[in-house]
Write a protein that binds this DNA or RNA. Structure first.
Lengths: 219, 219
DNA sequence: GTCTATAACTGGATAGAC
DNA sequence: GTCTATCCAGTTATAGAC
């Protein structure tokens, strides 16, 4: 609570806003310090440099996001023990993303959503690895649940399909809209968003593995 | 065929490689001209500046891509006239992307895939609008076919779901791997990739619109 | 059409006074 | 902890010789 702690916070707040608006590459340290009304050297003193600041900004959003994911997955297990149906797994997994998007939209931080989208799909040298480390504990809990929910889908195929699911999440972050406009999912109600999303994703996830491309069904 | 035409081509070729490797922001004009073994001023002479060069690079890949999409859609109409089944529409729509990814992977241009992924989902000021203009004629042909193939899905819902499909495509570009490693779709055979992709996407696209979130099915 | 040279900037980082 | 002053590598763009 010392007054000195205020400086790093001001830096983070300004960086959050500017990384979001201009993108990770287009935002200079000098622009951040100007916006935060602190000195350029302060960033080096408190964070070590530009890259470390970038990671700190992302961590502030990602740590709570994944913590919530783990909570909701634990809840789902508690309720449905032992076998959690696919819909429930997906809802627990996806809800924190929709909540974060809604929160950011609500506070006028649409640009930060796009920034998160970039961080998900195009980490860049400064945050690559960091993103994956954040996601690992979630994956460790998620996959056993999925295997149990849709045992007919082979593990390898499941991995492929979940990668496509993550691509969709990324797209939702990247395509987030300002509060006035309708979002990609065309509603502001998170439960409805979840319904639409799960209705779209679950059938594909649970679908039988394609057998042979000669019997694909297009002929 | 004059020898002078060679310079713009060398510039484009080098830009293609470097925009891919380092990303649109991280790649300087000077790095491009160094790689192309031409002078910095040549870019300004032939293209007008850095942004115009960037657009030219993208156009070289996107124009054939969308032309092929229109061809395949026309083929599908010719074969299935008048009503093209959903699988066939999706295959025609998705195949050019998979072909381009395969071609780029084959020629060691994985990084360019990631670049395309960025261009799709995070256009950036220099290429925003340009991307959409490229896509419009395809959309004009695609949507009527989709409406016919899955008339039960309301137009608004269809639009939402197709946005999710595009997010998946973007993810495939962004997640492209070098020739040795297995790709996101875990096979190098384009027909098999299409099978997997369509098997995952078609059920969700055709699914009945979610009725109410209180009957979602997670209880 | 092509090149050299340079103008006019901006970027991150840091030494050293306070 | 905070600031000034400065370093230096890098950028786009252009004027002007050839």
């Amino acid at each position: 609570m010392t007054e000195s702690d205020e400086t790093p916070n001001r830096i983070i707040a300004a960086a959050e806003r500017l990384f979001a608006e201009g993108g990770e590459d287009a935002t200079s340290l000098r622009a951040i310090t100007r916006a935060a009304a602190v000195n350029v050297a302060a960033v080096h003193y408190h964070f070590g440099g530009r890259d470390e600041l970038l990671r700190a900004v992302l961590d502030r959003k990602l740590a709570p996001l994944n913590a919530r994911r783990l909570d909701l997955l634990a809840d789902a297990i508690a309720v449905h023990d032992p076998a959690v149906p696919l819909d429930a797994v997906l809802r627990a997994f996806l809800r924190p993303d929709l909540e974060l998007i809604a929160e950011l939209r609500g506070s006028g931080q649409v640009a930060f959503c796009r920034f998160m989208g970039r961080a998900y799909s195009q980490p860049g040298p400064a945050v690559a690895g960091f993103m994956q480390r954040q996601f690992e504990p979630v994956a460790a809990r998620l996959y056993p649940l999925l295997r149990r929910a849709i045992p007919a889908v082979p593990a390898a195929e499941l991995l492929v399909r979940m990668r496509l699911v993550v691509a969709v999440i990324t797209g939702l972050f990247a395509g987030a809209t300002p509060p006035g406009e309708p979002g990609p999912l065309d509603t502001d109600d998170i439960d409805e968003q979840l319904d639409r999303l799960v209705a779209f994703l679950a059938p594909g996830l649970a679908a039988p593995a394609s057998l042979s491309h000669t019997i694909g069904g297009s002929g």
